[in-house]
Simulated assay, not measured.
Amino acid sequence: MQNKTLRIATRKSPLALEQTKYVQKKILSLYPDLNIKLVPIVTHGDNILNKSLSKIGGKGLFIKELERALLENKADIAIHSMKDLPVNITKELCLVSICKRGNPLDTLISNNYRSINQLPKGAIIGTSSLRRQCQLITYRPDLIVTPLRGNVETRIAKLDQGQYDAIILATEGLNRLSLKHRITQIIPAELSLPSCGQGAIGIQSRIHDKKVLFFLSHLNHINTFIEINAERAFCRKLESGCQIPIGSYAILKKNKIWLRGLIGSPNGKIILRGERIGWYDTGEKMGYSLADELLRNGAKNILNNLNIKQSYCI
């Protein structure tokens, strides 16, 4: 790729740009003579901030414009937070690489309380995630969970203005924005199981662009790829249109994968959980198997009810 230009599509949010700079640095470490051009894009999801994601079509709204840039040859690759990338990718595109995962867990930020357990009854908690809402309400039904949209800095500003007693964000996003000092509590997975792919950055490209696929495949972190492949298999089996409360989290250690998954109702009244442990090369099968188990145990009813209620989603 020497003396060539690589065009990178990215969202314009501060976090997305930081993630893109991280990938850019990785690419230049392999190909120092490569010319890189950023193609910043404002997505539909970035423009609609007064509605919850579940009501406007889910996380895919952050992806469509970036994928269009690839399909229209306005960019060569696109950088995504893996938790935002739909499990079913447009057929002309593919996931080239997944970079080494950072911290996948959720974080509580509060100016007055040190943990979820210390929050008083009736405390107002801000989150844009049905997954976080579902688990939090199950654990602390006495709390009030309200929608919170905007980039990371905007959400923290709303907390500092006193609109919320606490907010929940992704830990790795705070780390990348040098906001680690704002973390009050890193929430254990037992209390808030992460979103599929949370904490990792994915690189997407056109499936027939063999040169890009070959060179950028060197950025793939194999352990992270194996973990997230298992998580995405679980979600792929359960995914049903708009955003629904689903969590999946895999840990690869000594060639064994520990996969946990959950699906619940947005009001937290129902949460189904399960787990699998198996060899590293069975992650995808484990994901499908675990999803099948939850479907048999009631997940199908949850999905059917959500589909009826959310049939208006775009």
Rank of each mutant, 00 (worst) to 15 (best):
N3W: 05
K4E: 11
T5M: 02
R7Q: 06
A16N: 06
L17Y: 08
V23N: 06
S29W: 00
L30H: 14
P32N: 03
N35D: 10
I41E: 03
D46Y: 10
D46A: 12
K51R: 14
S52V: 13
G57V: 15
G57H: 09
K59C: 12
G60C: 01
L61T: 15
E67I: 12
A69M: 02
E72L: 14
N73I: 02
K74R: 15
A75R: 05
M82G: 09
V87G: 00
K91P: 15
E92D: 12
L93P: 08
C94W: 00
S97I: 13
I98V: 15
N103C: 11
Y113M: 08
I116D: 03
Q118N: 13
P120N: 03
I125W: 02
I137H: 04
I137T: 14
Y139H: 14
L143T: 12
L148F: 01
T154Q: 15
D160V: 01
Q161D: 10
Q161I: 09
G162A: 07
A166N: 02
A170K: 12
N175E: 12
L179Y: 04
I183T: 04
A189R: 10
S192E: 11
G199S: 01
G199T: 08
I203R: 05
Q204G: 00
L213N: 14
F215V: 07
L216C: 08
S217V: 09
L219M: 13
N220H: 10
H221K: 01
N223K: 13
F225V: 00
I226E: 05
E227H: 03
E227R: 00
R232G: 04
L238M: 07
E239D: 09
S240K: 14
P245Y: 03
S248L: 10
L252I: 12
I257V: 13
L259M: 11
G261W: 07
L262C: 14
L262F: 11
G268H: 05
K269T: 15
E275K: 13
E275A: 12
W279H: 15
G287R: 08
G287M: 07
S289A: 11
L294F: 06
N297M: 07
N297E: 11
A299Q: 03
I302K: 06
N307Y: 03
